[in-house]
Design a protein around this nucleic acid. Structure first.
Lengths: 195, 195
DNA sequence: GCGTTCTTGTCCAAAAGAGAACAAGTGCTC
DNA sequence: GAGCACTTGTTCTCTTTTGGACAAGAACGC
């Protein structure tokens, strides 16, 4: 049986090469000033190959988020009334930014960051909603219940907001500290809404 | 115009991956114990791809020699009666072995070394003959003249002999010193034959 | 303005790689 | 020595990659 879709070895190589090329370029110069051909040259990949996988440069940038969120282990609901298990993504993502943002400086630029964060928000919204729907307690229906889609969108957008603030202020807090800020901001609402 | 033959970007990538995989494997285990599938796994290359480029494992090993000798700059004949410019390859190759042999230890094994040296001898013979034929002085014909093919074969085989001795004795001499040995062995003959 | 040069994104035919199946050989152990 | 697992090298079809051509759109100086 033949491997299908994105499992093909050649595809994986191509995606890796392109992503690594972009990352290493951002480490050297402003994202906005990077031109597709530079990425191709560094990745040693043909032009048409690039466009079979990505719509444009921004699409390539965005695709890295899937790399970050994709392999994130799903949370296991701990027994008890605590609701913070649904914020499982928070600390890992903060830590990821902490590790990588220093190398990037602000060469990503406002436009690049906007694209990145908007996509992060969208993907996080979906991811959280998915996990919430798997949760048993969401089975309880009630007239006044807030739909999980709204809650997940709320959490994702608040997360990105906090992340943005953190970055704008030079990441003076440790990942654990900013994570705590995020949790104290959202947990009360979460408890009230989902109890 | 389309690129042809070995210039294709995909081919270069494949060859590099396979060669690097083999080298890194030799750094870890005996050459004889390395199996094709291990090379494929490490290079992340398909089986059929391997066999479109190489006859077998030995062929891959040998191909590295071309990498070593291929980019070697051709010698420039210095004016004067000195003949040692034709030994231009000697020191670079000794130095190459000096740099890499320590990492390889003796994991290459007697069989691997025999294959390698036999091929090195063959390629060197051709390379030297080629350079000699480009040389002006070889134009001089004479009944007693020794054909350049014989001289190049003599030089190559003596070189490999010295190289072998050097390796067998644990490379106790510096590259410059063993190079000197080689030159003192061959120069008198060279002068006598080609003056 | 206007031409020149660079960039973007699309399309295509041809080449290379993937992977599975296969026969044949090797080596092992029971 | 029969069975089994593994390796080698070949062949096949299908998928991806390639590079060149192209149109359309910046960006630039003159």
């Amino acid at each position: 049986m033949r491997k299908i879709g994105t499992e093909d070895r050649r595809i994986q190589k191509t995606l890796s090469l392109l992503r690594e090329a972009l990352v290493s370029l951002i480490a050297e110069k402003r994202y906005d000033s990077i031109v597709v051909k530079e990425i191709l040259d560094r990745a040693n990949v043909g032009r048409s190959t690039f466009y079979t996988h990505f719509r444009d440069k921004d699409d390539l940038l965005i695709s890295g988020i899937q790399d970050l969120l994709g392999p994130m282990p799903s949370p296991t609901r701990t027994p008890g009334k605590s609701q913070d298990w649904i914020l499982w993504f928070s600390l890992p993502v903060f830590e990821h930014h902490y590790r990588h943002a220093h190398a990037w400086g602000d060469r990503i630029g406002p436009r690049g960051r906007a694209i990145l964060h908007e996509h992060l928000r969208r993907v996080l919204t979906e991811l959280i909603a998915e996990v919430m729907k798997k949760d048993f307690r969401m089975g309880r229906q009630s007239a006044r219940r807030i739909p999980p889609e709204v809650v997940s969108a709320y959490l994702a957008s608040t997360f990105v907001l906090v992340l943005n603030w953190w970055l704008d202020n030079g990441m003076r807090l440790q990942p654990g500290e900013i994570d705590d800020v995020f949790r104290r901001l959202t947990l009360p609402t979460l408890v009230a809404v989902r109890s």
